[in-house]
């Protein structure tokens, strides 16, 4: 148990884990997967968008998990790595954007594309993630004050919501992966709200 905690808390191991999804898309380039090679930037664009999204959902699920299972030791350890996961999501989103540049050839297209709802929504989500990543340092927390910082970082939920729409609108046909990525988080959040409501009423009863 201590071992798992130590693993999670070890910076080197945790950062290596977080960077693995950036490495394995190279694999099909060496094995000759022709579907990937035919349109490599599209594949990379999707891959990094997918991981940016998955990491964002992952980091958002830490808090509700901790509220629901306060005694689970590795959740505490994971919670201490929240910042790393959040920043990783931002880094993957940056790479996603980078490949969108290669894919669609640069700024003019991006500006032109802003009239497409799914791109505009993606850019909004990206701006939020940028803001959050820029204020992820301890100094920023001190500078903003813990309360402001905390309410500001609640925008991460909005970002996740925008990414769900971005992803759903980006394909010709509704991609079912949106459901399996976001449904667990949605359920967790609902359970957490019910839980909080119950706790409140219980403590109210105790007080009176």
């Amino acid at each position: 148990m201590n071992f798992v905690t130590r693993l999670i808390r070890s910076e080197i191991i945790f950062y290596s884990l977080l960077s693995l999804p950036a490495l394995w898309p190279l694999y099909p380039f060496f094995t000759g997967n022709y579907t990937v090679l035919a349109d490599p930037t599209k594949y990379l664009l999707h891959h990094f968008g997918f991981w940016a999204c998955l990491l964002l959902v992952t980091v958002l699920s830490f808090t509700p998990l901790k509220v629901l299972f306060p005694k689970l030791f590795f959740l505490t350890a994971l919670n201490s790595q929240r910042r790393a996961v959040g920043v990783a999501s931002f880094v993957y989103a940056c790479i996603h954007l980078g490949f969108q540049f290669l894919h669609e050839s640069g700024w003019p297209t991006l500006v032109h594309d802003l009239r497409k709802p799914f791109i505009l929504i993606g850019v909004l989500a990206f701006l939020i993630l940028t803001l959050l990543a820029a204020t992820s340092f301890n100094a920023a927390v001190r500078w903003l004050g813990a309360r402001t910082w905390k309410s500001m970082h609640r925008f991460a939920y909005l970002a996740a919501f925008l990414v769900a729409i971005h992803q759903a609108l980006g394909r010709k046909i509704f991609p079912k992966q949106v459901i399996w990525i976001f449904l667990p988080l949605l359920i967790l959040e609902i359970v957490r709200l019910i839980y909080r409501y119950k706790k409140k009423t219980v403590s109210a009863v105790v007080l009176s």
């Binding site: 035919a38 349109d39 490599p40 930037t41 599209k42 290669l102």
Partner: peptide, 10 residues
């Protein structure tokens, strides 16, 4: 995008 054009010249 030209299929088979690679990463940079497609």
């Amino acid at each position: 995008r030209v299929i088979g054009g690679g990463v940079f010249n497609g």
